[in-house]
Design a protein around this nucleic acid. Structure first.
Lengths: 238, 238
DNA sequence: TAGATTGTTAATCGATTAACAATC
DNA sequence: TAGATTGTTAATCGATTAACAATC
């Protein structure tokens, strides 16, 4: 087995694990708010909605922060995960596109409380310049470069219509943004080294609809138990 | 090999594939709007942002809707995917919690255009009853059961604060909702057979922050090429 | 010491991908 | 027929899970 120096903990955390770390962080915060100082992997897994084997496996990628026979110190583990994710310091963020969704994002308190500071709201519609949203003035989209360099913005949020998304992404990348959260219903392409995550409300609903439809089929079959589960035709084509 | 009757196409589509079908559907719609009648797996994969091998594998779970040497008929494939997902007919949806996010969701045109019909907006704050949002009146949360049974609502959207989410979910399930899209930053538990999908804005940002932080480390190392890539201590403990 | 719970192993499962035979 | 492109196979990769030795 290979160990590393203490200053740089062992690494390459699987993507699936990275995506769950914020969930664990939130669950630990909820436990702390209820005055709980120590928890087992079973407790935390329940609070996070995963099974405890997966939780322990995930945490094992970060290091060895529990005590056998005892469990985890809530505050200590919380700090370690926050440090791992990088939310122990502040991240300046710009939001482009201040429609209904941009409005909601600007007002979302969960950003600020988790280390994300909205340094600017940008909109292509100059009519909106100066309007205050969540206490932050809306500025022209063309101010992007100036703002990004002034605040060293690395993370941008796109909340524009689909048609504008690629242009906004290009401008963001040119301005030095290297991580983009895209709410526009469009696929955007970015150079190597730039991360894009996509949140698409109607896609989520469509995934639910698919499963909903299958449930309906299941019920239909329940009502016709004479239909075979697998009406197989061996060797049949198509 | 086993084939099925034509009325019920072969099945059990992997989750990862199901999650991409709406992406393909949207890409096909975009191609159709550009007047494109036929496309290769390479074309469609590019439009959807995946590689073509994955696309073909995904489509193969639905059936055999392409023509070797030619490609796919855009409209035909679009219909087949829409049918598979279940968005050829309308799904009535209720949205609970009409804050900033609920507002944005109610106004989101992408729902209606993809077969989702918002039949009611509900809010626990009775002060808001009667307010029109996107042309739909806000109603008291207690109307949930009546509305759900009147419209046979199977899909519910939670856009409340975290503290209310579990209660809303319980009431939805009791009212016959079997699929929930949860925007509240809380883990909700539901009985077997109910599907929950979760969209969490700050979790997405935290995942980006993690990768952003790693990029910063990479750069730091670039500037200190004398640091070994893996300062390994073989046999060291921890 | 006895009981509890972590961290790790190893088996299993599911997803991705390249390559290519089938076939238009 | 020659060229193009699908649908499928098989190899690889990554994620999940149960089980348990390590150890508090």
């Amino acid at each position: 087995m290979t160990a590393r120096t203490s200053s740089e903990s062992a690494r390459v955390i699987p993507e699936a694990t990275v995506a769950r770390l914020p969930v664990y962080l939130r669950a630990l915060t909820a436990l702390a708010e209820r005055g709980i100082r120590t928890c087992s992997s079973e407790d935390l897994a329940a609070a996070a909605g995963v099974n405890s084997a997966k939780l322990r496996k995930d945490l094992s990628y970060l290091g060895s922060y529990g005590t056998r026979g005892v469990g985890y110190d809530v505050d200590y583990l919380r700090y370690q995960i926050a440090r791992e994710i990088g939310v122990t310091h502040d991240w300046p963020v710009v939001i482009v596109g201040i429609g209904n969704l941009g409005h909601a994002l600007a007002n979302y308190s969960g950003f600020r409380s988790r280390g994300f500071r909205v340094v600017a709201l940008l909109d292509a519609d100059l009519e909106r310049t100066g309007e205050l949203v969540a206490g932050v003035p809306v500025r022209p989209f063309d101010d992007l470069e100036a703002i990004a360099s002034e605040h060293s913005v690395a993370i941008g949020v796109i909340a524009t219509p689909a048609a504008a998304a690629q242009d906004v992404a290009d401008r963001m990348v040119a301005a030095g943004v290297t991580s983009i959260l895209n709410f526009a219903p469009a696929v955007i392409s970015v150079p190597e080294g730039v991360d894009v995550r996509k949140v698409d409300l109607s896609i989520e609903l469509q995934i639910l609809a698919y499963h909903e439809q299958r449930k309906a089929h299941e019920h239909a079959r329940d009502e016709h138990p004479d239909l075979p589960e697998m009406p197989a035709v061996v060797g049949g084509d198509q």
